[in-house]
Design a protein around this nucleic acid. Structure first.
Lengths: 235, 235
DNA sequence: GTCTATATACGGATAGAC
DNA sequence: GTCTATCCGTATATAGAC
């Protein structure tokens, strides 16, 4: 599967996301007309992620934010009661989308190597489709309050666990080399995160997401399978 | 070489660092008595890195900072003229230490595999010894002004280049597999950065820096050499 | 629903006593 | 060399007109 196919299949657009946020938080908005809310949520989340990812969430002042959205400060406060609540909404929505999409796609397969490949691909493609969300979560985590921070860490550990489990499965069946599964999972994750954390670098070098995914798969397989040559033979 | 040996050899302590900062910025400090300056610089840099790495440099207020250092706000401004200058000093000192230590250690060797191993080890050990500095540079880069940001990016690319060059050298001599050197370098770097970025995770799992370095070497060699078995034979 | 004007608090930075 | 008190700008958030 390449990225284009992924996008066709999974259906993530700004419109979809905003509809979703609206459905989740309906009672929190002072404004009640769905059409208005959805339209403005689009501006709000796009601007919030843009400014935050350029210079940090704290450094985004409301004046700043107001100018970027084209809405007045007063209007903005009809959609959240404080900057903190906005941050919480961003985080919740991010987690929700990732969980929904990640769980569905990986659990279907049986063979550990197929699962590993799929997990890697999905993760990279998902982080491409939701790059601003992933970047935000990563960079802002340490600035959040206790509760939010803990959720972010839990989420990090959960992803590690998915990979560690696949690796253990592969080791049990004798397909994978017996290297520490937890460390291996962490290492794979670091590589995956690099895609959305160093976007400017990859853009500069004109690396496409498909190239990156292909490259990562090749390297991870070399690391995890007894001998590179076998990878070709097995499938 | 293990981490303990590294520390013995390279000589990085808070005291050393502060003496160094003092020597570099002598004219900037309103206070002139070396002993006083060095003592307070210790408090200042320790506190600045601690608070910043917990909740961000911007979120560190001067009142905050004053309490952590035990110095009054007025006294603090005897050592820098603005928060921005403080940030700049932190960054400059960080770059200086890294450059000095990194260059020295890697250039000596000839064999590409030895060089690669050495570069990986040194980078991990150095980022352990200077963890707060590395973490700060990584997480704060996007919040800096243009000039500082550019220096940070240049530094990122420079490290990539060191690895890419070693890899090209190894490919020329036929030792390494012919995988894209730039992508490979980036991937290795992502793995190295994970050590200082996810410190809490590794601490929780009780992974020592020596274990991590050993593990990374093993994985990178599996990825880069024609066949894992050959690694043992070659050396 | 959206705007402008404003209340209120907190930020960085400085002056001047000690 | 260090401290306290204070200036002044800018931040978030709200009130009330339109």
């Amino acid at each position: 599967m390449n990225y284009a196919a992924f996008r066709q299949k999974i259906h993530i657009s700004r419109e979809d996301i905003c509809l979703n946020i609206y459905a989740q938080n309906r009672e929190k908005f002072r404004i009640k007309k769905e059409k208005t809310v959805v339209k403005n949520l689009g501006k709000i989340f796009t601007a919030a992620l843009k400014i935050s990812n350029e210079k940090g969430f704290q450094a985004m002042s409301m004046r700043n934010f107001s100018k970027e959205t084209g809405l007045s400060i007063g209007a903005l406060y009809s959609y959240f009661s404080s900057k903190d609540e906005l941050l919480e909404m961003i985080q919740r929505q991010g987690r929700l989308m990732v969980k929904r999409l990640l769980d569905d796609h990986i659990l279907a397969l049986e063979d550990p190597l197929d699962r590993l490949r799929k997990a890697i691909c999905i993760h990279i493609y998902l982080s491409e489709a939701l790059q601003p969300w992933f970047y935000f979560s990563y960079m802002e985590a340490k600035n959040m309050n206790r509760a939010e921070k803990e959720k972010a860490l839990a989420s990090e550990l959960a992803t590690d666990l998915i990979f560690a489990d696949i690796i253990r499965q592969g080791q049990s069946s004798g397909t994978f080399l017996p290297r520490d599964p937890q460390l291996t999972a962490g290492l794979i994750k670091a590589i995956l995160q690099d895609w959305y954390l160093k976007r400017w670098k990859h853009a500069k070098r004109k690396i496409s997401v498909d190239q990156y995914a292909r490259f990562v798969l090749e390297c991870v397989e070399a690391m995890i399978l007894p001998c590179p040559a076998l990878a070709g033979i097995r499938k």
